[in-house]
Design a protein around this nucleic acid. Sequence first.
DNA 1: CGAAACACCGAAAACGTTTTCGATTTTACA
DNA 2: TGTAAAATCGAAAACGTTTTCGGTGTTTCG
Lengths: 343, 343
Amino acid sequence: MKEATLKEIATTLGISITTVSKALKNYPDVSEKTRKAVVALAEELHYMPNSFAVNLRTKESKTIGLIIPEVVHHFFSGVVNGIIAEAEKHGYLVIILQSNESLELEKKQVALLINKRVDGIIMSLSNESNNDAHIKEILQKEIPFVQFDKISKLIPSSKVIINDQKAAMEAVQHLIDMGCKKIAHIRGLENPQNSIDRFLGYKKALEKNGIPFDSKLVYSCKSITFEQGVEFAKQILEEDKGIDGVFVITDLVAVGVLAYFNEKGVQVPNQIAVIGFSNWLVSQVITPKLSTVDQPSYEMGVAAFALLLEEILCRKEGKVFEPKIIELKTGVIVRESTMKNGQ
Amino acid sequence: MKEATLKEIATTLGISITTVSKALKNYPDVSEKTRKAVVALAEELHYMPNSFAVNLRTKESKTIGLIIPEVVHHFFSGVVNGIIAEAEKHGYLVIILQSNESLELEKKQVALLINKRVDGIIMSLSNESNNDAHIKEILQKEIPFVQFDKISKLIPSSKVIINDQKAAMEAVQHLIDMGCKKIAHIRGLENPQNSIDRFLGYKKALEKNGIPFDSKLVYSCKSITFEQGVEFAKQILEEDKGIDGVFVITDLVAVGVLAYFNEKGVQVPNQIAVIGFSNWLVSQVITPKLSTVDQPSYEMGVAAFALLLEEILCRKEGKVFEPKIIELKTGVIVRESTMKNGQ
DNA sequence: CGAAACACCGAAAACGTTTTCGATTTTACA
DNA sequence: TGTAAAATCGAAAACGTTTTCGGTGTTTCG
């Protein structure tokens, strides 16, 4: 049971490989009669172009690479979903690799993808990452490239982002609107841009409302975990600073905060209101339901692939590509954890 | 900035392409001197074998395909994680496609992967799927193939599964051990094997303990959602049959049940105990913490790839491959939702 | 009728690698 | 020194496709 090839079709039909190829690709210079014959035989033999040969000849694989910190993460799996769906619509397949937030691994993954000769790379930087050699190599080799979510502004490429700063501002503004006077911020790690931006948004919201910024009200995560949230919640209660609202870097940590508050009988939101970030699945199924900021993950994936495809097509024509930045809308989702007095 | 090729190295060194190729692959019939020269120049030019050409020549792509119902699912993303990690260890990359539980899509995805000439396919069947033509095609083309989680027993291939029936039995036994007398089961959709098996496990556990099976205590999900759980919880309370324990097909639905019980002030576990399945992230962060059955998703991924690789290597040597079945251990995770009287 | 236009086809190169097999050179040893 | 063995190399085929370019044969039309 051998695979059918152009050659096989050609010889059984007594014509040349060239003609067979052209017939199947609807070239104009092949008569209707032979075209029909070729198509019929191809159908019969279940002919399928050998993609290895096509790749070699056309120098493209119709495959793109995707590097994310980890799939097991509601936000990222949403993005993956969007990318795969959009890619498939345009005849592209997606190879997924994980950096596990390690720069070392990230470099290796990039090398793997370049070696595989993918047609483009979509990537969310690991926390350790910056404008390093492996990224430069992508750009220098002119491999279409787009960053999303965790980006580095130093890298000149297309980007799909949310305005973390604005989103954070809105979240904190919401707490203020709900009557919170002393708002703490559980921020993320030091380096990632989104961690920084959300922190800045927090600061700006305070400033805008004439609330003095107090660095003692900022708690910096060592890791983005449930346990970290529990720990800080404990600290907040023990320190007893009169905090009545908390803006947390992400839902997972916020849920840890809620869990501890629940355990200790702290009234949420009336005593302390809590708002998270990213709209994880958990946020809508815990008690009290967690207010959060919606991050359109699927749409991010779609947009990221769209930008990548644009660059792929542009470069194919030999033109220079002008990177684009797409900023997606976020929105505060108000749930029980901030809804004071039945508002 | 052209890519370096064997030819380029050969001509600049004044030797043949053959020798260059052999030198780089440590063939024994090339002198140490030329080998060193070749390696040095290759290094300098950043030579990388053109994978398209290698694929064509060796007839393998070092790439495997993975088809799952959806990535945005804690269990599946865990499996994906395991597969990717294990695959990478052995020099394979992973293309991921989603069937979205649609047979139509699933067929298309299989066709895509065959067309891409992946070295093997790992797959969790969609709910609609059975031993259809597209699966037969995989087997008939002798493409290494392993099923996991949602499998069809009719298909002769390697499989990685958990013993759903046994796992369900253990879960229900746990409820009985906790003193539950009237145990309801919220089961999954009709067709999937795991849905059937968990139901059978539920039945067997009752039988074993001399509790009469009552079909009125079985609620069949139309969809696997939080809302479905809420709905059935409502129904359970309204029907007021004296149910004191519920075994739910999966955590997401169980969490819906808990949410409704919480809202209505039903004491969990003392009034009604609840146990889920799959150990989703949510189960450990809600109140009360949900007892559940641990499904080793990452390990499943690892095992699935291991089986696939075994088949790939076996077939490469032209031997016939004997499919294997790996059954992974599950375990009941006891948390607050079933821990009656502080036991 | 002759030339130009057109329709149809195929030879061959190219993509870059791997591997077989034979050729040549060097070494070893009697 | 002669010969067998070992070491080193390269020509060439093969993988299957795409595409250029030129070559037939046929039609059209002045």
